[in-house]
Design a protein around this nucleic acid. Sequence first.
RNA 1: GGCGACAUAGCCAAGUGGUAAGGCAGAGGUCUGCAAAAUCUCCAUCCCCGGUUCAAAUCCGGGUGUCGCCUCCA
Length: 462
Amino acid sequence: MKLYNTKTRSKEDFIPLQEGQLKLYACGPTVYNYFHIGNARAFIIFDVVRRYFEYLGYEVSYVQNITDIDDKIIEQAISEHRDFHEIADKYATAFLEDCAMLGIKPPTHQPRATHVMPQIIALIDTLVQKGHAYEVDGDVYFDTASLPEYGSLSGKQIEDQMTGARVAENTQKKHPADFTLWKKSKPGEPVWQSPWGEGRPGWHTECVVMSQHYLGESFDIHGGGIDLVFPHHENENAQAMALTGKPLARYWMHNGFLNIEGEKMSKSLKNFFTARDILEEYDAEVIRFFFLSKHYRSPIDFTRELIEESGKALQNFYKALSSVDFLSLKRTEITLSEILDVEKGFRDAMDDDFNSAKAIALLFDLAHRIRDARQEQTHREEAALMLVKLGKVLGFFQNLQSRLQDNMHDLSKQLIDLILGYRKEARANKDWALSDRLRDDLLALGIVINDSPGGSTWELRN
RNA sequence: GGCGACAUAGCCAAGUGGUAAGGCAGAGGUCUGCAAAAUCUCCAUCCCCGGUUCAAAUCCGGGUGUCGCCUCCA
């Protein structure tokens, strides 16, 4: 298993801290709004990381935070004229709903920042006592100069980067790179009591507290979007280094950005889509296919044409599974070496820094085998079993049964409507013998015809 | 100013030294009363220039182009 580590900018062999166990942390949302389609990409990618490790037999602890106190939430609360708690709850609930819609398996733990406030304050206090943080008039800052390793994750040299960068003047800080750990409250803002007076936590600290609480002071993989490398993850790691002398995580994984029609998604360009918007229009599984058909570290361009293309491509799997009547398969064993080789190829692809695009190509290979009329029946069934097995590792086929049954259901309805069409024609020709025969035959199948002046309808007899 | 990513067929996209996966679209064959479906086959030498090598999409150097980060951001 190799994965690309942002910290070293290279692919490395993955070696877990404890054999057979994966401690994974991926940054969740700040719940000030519905999350957008770019967030969805990250959530789906780390869902697949988690599923793949589980498939490999790892015992996975997957923690994802819900940051429910932050400037943006306060701003949103003001604009909606509501309490910040209500806003945070509203969007946290929406977040969970949307993730479920996307077929994302719930993380092992999903802690909220406001539930760990004593620990956040304790962490900041420790940093102050260790000389890595300082207070100025109710605000507490992390002292980046106190940590020689600061910048090592993102590859930034503090002195260089600040020239020309748009960094707001803050005369309170000792150094422009110093970041806020604790923020003195302004009137009307939510407050917690602290050794530095009433205030609230800055960004970055809650992730350190929550990840270490569930995963230990240093864990295996920390993930998030590429934009989080700096400053968020750099600052998280700095706190951990200052606290324990050890990095927060051994491997840092970051997914690439999502653009819309070739442009950066932004509210001002009016190309900002929430996952909720997209899910109204497209199937979650199609969205997942779209994301996984490209490597997670590459930028991805979101267009309707490409989503629709993904839908067509995905349809191949269902056609194949329908052709073997997958739901009626009794066998579960896969013994054919050719099919097992495909599984090996799938693992090789996924072991290579989660090459899901290559893995999907192997799923098509299976679909192709299933649909190839020249194959022996047994081979087709084994290929179908493997297709579902591997597809599920990527999070596909979660509603396989209803999906395949719905197809059948729709077909039945269409067939009945078709027969009713013939009967209508027969009745128009006063061919009562045929008309009655059609009605009786349908009735024998439990389908009741109701004739009315406006036409005929049908229902199933209970 | 600093840092980084990317550039593969009409489109999307894998591929880090040995002669270009897969998907969408397209073309042709089989099948077929016609059509559709199904199925089979076909469709690129990898942005440009130079270098290393028996051999490069793949390594090195130089261009060109696109995008991103350094400010809240997945």
